[in-house]
Design a protein around this nucleic acid. Structure first.
Length: 396
RNA sequence: GGAGAGGUGGCCGAGUGGUCGAAGGCGGCGGAUUGCUAAUCCGUUGUAGUGGUAAUACCGCUACCCCGGGUUCAAAUCCCGGCCUCUCCGCCA
């Protein structure tokens, strides 16, 4: 979420970003609501002042043996007026919140505009060879992934890993965790896989992506689409000390996505799964360290691929592909030799203070001011490493 | 699932209708004292909104004692609903 005052004073930038991300926002109406809210708050403040004064007058007058009945009358009047205005303020604030929550994060100035170009290739690493065998054939054995039985047990897009495939998945997860814990100094987190509405709201999945989420209706909980959600919410509604920052977390979790509306797209094999494993990194930093931290994470993410001996490229996503909450996103795409294509294994995003504001994640600066934390994350999906011929061959 | 207890400031803990943003203690900060450390003494110490204003300085006002409603001129305090925590019993892993 963006700050009310920020939107007012940076209207052009905010509108431009919203348009690029194809989010429709009625800014005219929003500004009217913002102004009315201010009016009401000012009016209520003075009414309450009057109320408080009148009330203490009652006890004084009574002590002195005076007649309090006119004061009681007056108090009642003021209270009624307050009630009226409070009701309007509540409506206005709800309306304002409903408008604000649909405004996407602002885009970094470096993000390419989708009108002329698509993504921008930032880096290419390794050789992009082609092999005849597709990943799909390699993993279809009794030491591979059994999609049929996975579908029987749960439904399509729930893969069942057998033998060496299960082993490979597990060691990849461990490898990524260990690398970031030991070499990059992240703290390991093992989070809950079910979360509540507020947690998903603060990371921005809700309300926009509600139909993509698995929901447990009886308990009003959601299966996490990524470990980003519980990890980001560790400090929701908290105020940290400046010297506690930066916070660096790495978490493995299974991820659950309904992938509603994506039927027909990438329906085969390991793409677009309903359940998959992922190692997620999250950093909370001060605003002034935000950009640097983001680039550091981009390096850390690439290290995984370099150590695994995989070829990849790094791209900077264009505006229309940058997610609702993100300001700037790099994707790392591994080269899949069998299917001869680039596949997204990692996504490194800078959210600035967008999620922090939604979740009220703050820190106290030395000057005593509470500031919203900047957050960035990157993800790494081990299952996509299966796509690479060399990796599969090595392990099978 | 059944029964009970409880949620107050950074922490502990008092407070059952007005003078309570809230006693007291601890911690933090500033200072005094001090061979060092410790101890002692004095002062200070929440957050947000809004107005005065150029101000993250200062002053005023408002809100906040888990959350949301209600009663009342007046609510931390009374009433209703919710959430959370703890203890005991049962059940399952």
């Amino acid at each position: 979420m963006l700050d009310r005052e920020f939107i007012v004073s940076n209207r052009e930038l905010v509108e431009k970003s919203a348009t690029a991300k194809k989010c429709k926002v009625n800014f005219e109406h929003l500004f009217k609501v913002i102004n009315r809210r201010k009016e009401l708050i000012n009016s209520l403040n003075s009414l309450r002042e009057e109320k408080n004064k009148n009330s203490s007058q009652v006890s004084k007058t009574r002590k002195d043996g005076g007649d309090i009945s006119p004061l009681l009358e007056k108090g009642k009047e003021i209270s009624n007026k307050i009630k009226e205005e409070e009701e309007e303020l509540k409506r206005i604030e709800e309306e304002e919140f409903n408008l604000l929550k649909w405004i996407p994060n602002i885009l970094d100035e470096e993000v390419p505009s989708g009108e002329n170009s698509n993504f921008k290739i930032v880096k290419e690493f390794g050789k992009f060879e082609e092999k005849k065998l597709s990943y799909f054939e390699i993993i279809k054995s009794d030491e591979g992934i059994d999609f049929k039985r996975g579908a029987k047990i749960s439904g399509s897009h729930f893969p069942l890993y057998l033998g060496k495939a299960a082993y490979l998945e597990r060691v990849l997860v461990n490898f990524m965790l260990d690398l970031h814990i030991v070499k990059h100094n992240y703290k390991e987190i093992f989070p809950p896989f079910l979360v509540n509405y507020d947690s998903l709201f603060s990371t921005g999945q809700l309300p926009k992506l509600e139909e993509d989420m698995y929901r447990l209706k009886d308990d009003d909980l959601f299966l996490i689409p990524t470990a980003e959600v519980p990890v980001t919410n560790i400090f929701r509604d908290e105020i940290l000390n400046e010297n506690e920052l930066p916070k660096k977390f790495v978490a493995y979790s299974a991820c659950f996505r309904r992938e509603a509306g994506s039927y027909g797209k990438d329906t085969k094999g390991l793409k677009r799964l309903h359940q998959f494993n992922k190692v997620e990194l999250v950093r909370f930093t001060k605003p002034e360290e935000s950009k640097k931290a983001h680039l550091e994470m981009l390096e850390e993410a690439q290290r995984v691929l370099v150590l695994l001996g995989l070829s990849y490229r790094v791209i900077l996503l264009p505006d229309f592909d940058t997610s609702f909450s993100s300001s700037k996103t790099y994707d790392i795409e591994v080269w899949a030799e069998g299917s001869k294509e680039f596949l997204e294994v990692s996504s490194v995003s800078n959210f600035l203070d967008f999620q922090a504001r939604r979740g009220k994640i703050r820190y106290k600066s030395r000057e005593g001011k509470n500031l919203f934390i900047h957050k960035k994350k990157f993800i790494f999906s081990p299952n996509f490493c299966f796509f690479n011929y060399r990796m599969c061959k090595k392990k099978f």
